[in-house]
Design a protein around this nucleic acid. Sequence first.
DNA 1: ATGTCACCTGGTAGGTGA
Length: 254
Amino acid sequence: MKLATWNVNSLGVRLQHLTNWLQAHPVDVLVLQETKLTDDKFPAAELQAAGYHAAFFGQKTYNGVALLTRSAHDTVVRNIPGFADEQARVIGASVDGLRIVGVYVPNGQAPGTDKYEYKLQWLRGLRDWLREELAVHRELVLMGDFNIAPEDRDVHDPAVWAGQIMCTEAERDQFRHLLELGLVDAFRLFDQPPKSWTWWDYRMLAFRKNQGLRIDHILVSEALRGRVRACSIDREPRKLERPSDHVPVTVELA
DNA sequence: ATGTCACCTGGTAGGTGA
């Protein structure tokens, strides 16, 4: 089976890109970030026509997450239990024997800001919850927009980005703490092309110059490690007209 | 070149967030 994550940067704008992509890549599970739609505006009918059950959790203007599955899913969770949050950033469910958690980690703006502190607090809350979740669900996939480039090889110019948002040591520590729970970065289980990014700034001709970061990730629990057959980034949607600034990442499980 | 995009309010531009 195949599972994927994609920050669409407004599902209202990107619905056609999404349905086209799903037609070409009929993954079994897809989590979306930055839908930017309240639940009453979520295009559930269009996605049902495309063959997907949808769970969604949105808000006005910002954030918003969704989970699409070919098979029926159940036991949906919205946001982090026990972590009070006014922003819609997490959706999880059980499907095909797997526990799926889709996340839109706060961007954090810049070190030293309130938003940065919120990001770090949020990541601590996520870790505390996932520790419990993993104890109950051995086969778990955590995927989404983490807004963290875990290592220098995930950054087009590590010198420029050193200490900047998405690359600070505190953020990378939080990412490592997630791995320490017993999660594996599926992308790094395989040889990958150098300069593999999932996000390019709209500005500065960043995509044309391939100046990006790898900040969208798929982490699988140790119990799933042996089932991972491939993990790849699809940069094609970034070439379309009016693209999202992020592209999809897909993992294949046996 | 902080050079783009999305979405809001409230209006034919400016602010916020990424």
